[in-house]
Design a protein around this nucleic acid. Structure first.
Length: 802
RNA sequence: GGGCCCGUAGUCUAGCGGUUAUGACGUCGCUUUUACACGGCGAAGGCCACCGGUUCGAAUCCGGUCGGGCCCACCA
């Protein structure tokens, strides 16, 4: 055994696992299935550190379950759908989809995906993901389109999908409707403009941040409590510049403190405007178009973009002496999370999933999931309680899963595709039958479905790859949904909703929510802050195992600041494991794999290890991989290396001074201790453990990989309290001797002339049983029982003559 | 404004009712011993954020205060 080089070894083992199908899902196995709804990463760039962090944590669990003997269903899909992909391709290829032919654009996207997808998947393979990569899906492929379209048809048939011309949130940059979950807050600089309206020839000052919406003004509203404006009720106000008149009404939603306490209601400045429109049945004046430009309604400002129009109107107001004040303010507005454009509310025809009536059920569904950590459920509950819109699923884009829908031009009937023909593209395909009214003249739906309408089906997307096989019934509902906390309201929520609407039950049993990787100061990493840490660079510098070691260093659900020193620690652990194995295996060359009569200190180690196995297993069952990590790490480094291996060195180097049983006992102990350490570490650091396992253990344990060699088993009979007690006394005594040498500036291997031990008779009997070991450990030429001056613990004192 | 999480040595982290508060990095001293100096041994370093309460006993449970993070709401 030379040196261990992870750069060479890690890819080698990854290839070995793939070639030998180590992580292959066995559809014929009788073993209990553990199915994982692996998050399909978006193919929009490289894997970032947050991915490495949370996917590594998932992989710990998957590898553990596999070693526990479960038939692990662990697919790997990619999410190639949605605006993120759209924007990436537009950027990479320098195109704008809306200016391209639809067909050309879609094939450009699909081709680009082919180019970049393997590179993205390679990043995941590099961190040692133990997925069965042969079970894969892409959220834009035929299989997924079929399931996604089928889902829509089913929802339509049970009355959950509906189409409506209604105000919806709109991104003028992406030129599509978006849903509540895609919103983000942004604090922006703006101006409060005090504008002169006119009532009965008198000025009425109204403050607005959006003067460009004056042409869309449909009413003036004040608070009924507000004495200042009481007299205006029922009167008409004349709009500046435009000259039309609107009614003055009262409503308690007006904040008297804000601006001048009186507000113009427009179509549609914000949600409150929408509410007023409904409540007072106000007219709808669409001054803003889907392209983010002003319409004919805006008169001379028609064709200008929002901000241009705002500037022009303000200039004109100033010229006409209609603007009396312009105060800079900071205000928070809703922006589209993908492009940070301020959203607008426009009246458009869209498809929705009706679910606002299901809030109580949704809370029920959430309560039935096993949440790890438990408090993450609160985020789900809060989201459900705050829902205000039905789920808007149509997007005015070219790329995506089409709606399997046509509209009859004669009677307006919605025509659905038949399930057996899915997937279809209504722009290419035609309905197989005429409409009920007899017409054969149809308009295809040209909108596409929101990406979440498809990715909310991942449990079906992966398990239905086995739809016609006997194993299918064991795959769904799935055992586990792993994901990060930022998308509880998107992915987890939507998936729960769809599964319950379709099947009447939850898509999974357990949910594990991981935290975020942060920069070294505990701040969120972002490109704009320039504090991005690339996992690829860290793997190059250290290793995938070291990166995983870092990821194992926080509790599930907790955010973890990235500290390069943690990778150094991981790296050192790998090297230590390698060196300790080098030593151990050197002394196991002539080991005969047979039962042994353990000596007391050997029994101490085995008994202690047995306890570690028990705790590590319980921890892993609760997804507390960090506890497993710490227990194993401490046992390996302190008990095994620093103490045990030092204790047995004399037995191994000078076997002639011991009986063959004693030597065999040491070898037997080392064999089992190291084997179990490798197994305990293997989910966290799969490569180094595999390397060592293959060098020595694979044949003897008759396993093709440490990862399928079985998890260590807790054996109650291996508990040996008495040996543990004596072992602990030896450890304490050794520590005292080492401290003496250290503080006396002596080398640790410097022999001592005399070691005197003061203890009671009972302890003395125990020590006499391990006298040989004691002599070897302390390197004392003579050991006697007598007066001691250095306190070891409450029971023991020692004296030393160097 | 509402909700949730978190405040433990210089830094990161474990513990979540009962020994002397875990481990790592860093610092300092000793130690180049045939697995490993990417090692070993030792030392210094903590009012476990603060204030109250419950308890025989609180880092741990409860209430409040302050600080940090995240989510949601508000957005004229």
């Amino acid at each position: 055994m030379d040196n261990y080089d992870p750069k060479e070894a890690e890819p080698r083992w990854q290839r070995y696992w793939a070639e030998h199908g180590i992580f292959r899902f066995d559809e014929d196995s009788k073993a209990e299935v553990y199915s994982i709804d692996t998050p399909p990463p978006t193919v929009s760039g490289k894997m970032h550190l947050g991915h490495a962090f949370s996917y590594a944590q998932l992989d710990f669990i998957a590898r553990y379950k596999r070693m526990r003997g479960f038939n692990v269903f662990y697919p790997f899909g990619t999410d190639d759908n949605g605006l993120a992909t759209d924007r990436l391709v537009e950027k990479l290829k320098g195109v704008k989809s809306s200016r391209m032919d639809r067909k050309d654009y879609v094939s450009l996207v699909l081709n680009t995906l082919q180019e970049i997808r393997p590179r993205v998947i390679a990043d995941w393979k590099r961190i040692g993901m133990s997925c069965d990569f042969t079970i894969n899906y892409s959220t834009i492929n035929e299989h997924c389109q079929r399931i996604s379209q089928r889902s829509f048809i089913e929802l339509y048939k049970i009355g959950r999908a509906y189409r409506k011309d209604a105000p919806t949130m709109w991104c003028p940059a992406c030129e599509t409707a978006i849903s509540q979950v895609e919103l983000k807050d942004a604090e922006l600089d703006s101006f409060f403009n005090d504008v002169k309206f006119n009532v009965d020839g008198k000025d009425l000052i109204i403050a607005t941040t959006r003067p460009e919406l004056i042409p869309a003004c449909v009413a003036i509203v004040f608070n009924p409590e507000d004495k200042r404006y009481k007299a205006l009720l029922g009167k008409k106000a004349k709009a500046p510049l435009f000259g039309f008149e609107v009614s003055i009404i009262e409503d308690s939603r007006v904040d008297m403190e804000k601006g001048t306490g009186i507000v113009m209601c427009c179509t549609f400045g914000d949600l409150t405007d929408m509410e007023w429109q409904k409540a007072f049945n106000l007219p709808i004046k669409e001054a803003l178009g889907k392209d983010g430009k002003m319409t004919q309604m805006a008169g001379k400002y028609a064709g200008l973009k929002i901000k241009e129009a705002r500037k022009a109107i303000i200039e004109d107001l100033e010229k006409s002496n209609l603007l009396i004040n312009k105060r800079p303010i900071k205000h928070t507005v809703n922006v589209h999370e993908r492009c940070e454009t301020e959203i607008e509310i426009l009246k458009t025809k869209q498809w929705f999933i009706k679910y606002l009536d299901l809030r109580e059920d949704m809370l029920d569904w959430g309560a039935k999931l096993n949440w790890y950590p438990a408090h993450m459920k609160v985020r789900y509950d809060n989201w459900v309680k705050g829902l205000q819109w039905d789920w808007l699923i149509s997007r005015q884009r070219f790329y995506g899963v089409p709606f399997p829908v046509w509209y009859c031009n004669k009677c307006g009937e919605v025509i659905l595709a038949e399930e057996k023909n899915l997937p279809i593209d209504p722009l290419q395909d035609k309905p197989k039958h005429p409409c009920k009214c007899g017409s054969n003249d149809f308009t295809p739906e040209k909108d596409v479905q929101d990406t979440w309408a498809t990715s909310s089906l991942t449990p079906q997307l992966s398990t239905e790859l086995f739809k016609n096989k006997p194993i299918y019934s064991k795959l769904f509902p799935m055992s586990l949904r792993p994901q990060a906390h930022d998308i509880i309201t998107f992915w987890l929520f939507n998936t729960t909703v769809k599964s319950n609407l379709h099947t009447g039950h939850n898509p999974w049993k357990d949910v594990i929510i991981s935290g975020h990787a942060q920069d070294p100061h505990g701040k969120k990493m972002s490109k704009s802050k320039g504090n991005i840490i690339e996992p690829q660079v860290m793997i190059d510098k250290f290793s995938a195992d070291a990166l995983r070691f870092w990821a194992a260093g926080s509790k599930l659900g907790d955010d973890l600041p990235f500290q390069e020193k943690d990778l150094v620690t991981g790296h050192k652990t790998i090297i230590k494991l390698w060196n300790a194995s080098k030593f151990a295996l050197m002394h196991l060359k002539d080991y005969k794999h047979q039962p042994a009569q353990l000596t007391i200190i050997d029994s101490w180690l085995i008994s202690k290890l047995n306890g570690i196995i028990k705790e590590a297993t319980e921890s892993f069952d609760n997804y507390e991989y960090i506890r497993t990590k710490m227990l194993t790490e401490n046992f390996f480094w302190q008990d095994f290396c620093d103490n045990y291996l030092e204790f047995v060195k004399d037995r191994l180097y000078n076997p002639q001074n011991y009986t063959s049983e004693e030597v065999h006992s040491a070898q037997h102990t080392i064999y089992h201790a190291l084997l179990n350490i490798l197994k305990l570490f293997s989910p966290l650091m799969p490569h180094i453990t595999e390397e060592i396992f293959q060098i020595y253990y694979a044949d003897k344990e008759n396993a093709k990989s440490v990862h399928v060699s079985g998890w260590p088993i807790f054996v109650p009979e291996l508990y040996d309290k008495r040996s543990e007690f004596i072992g602990e006394q030896l450890v304490a005594l050794t520590a005292a001797v080492r401290k003496f040498k250290s503080t006396s500036n002596l080398a640790l291997n410097k022999p001592l002339k005399l070691l005197a031990i003061e203890c009671d008779d009972e302890m003395r009997k125990e020590f006499e049983l391990v006298m040989k070991d004691l002599k070897a450990i302390s390197k004392a030429e003579e050991i006697m029982f007598g007066k001691g001056s250095i306190e070891v613990n409450q029971k023991i004192k020692i004296s030393i003559v160097a």
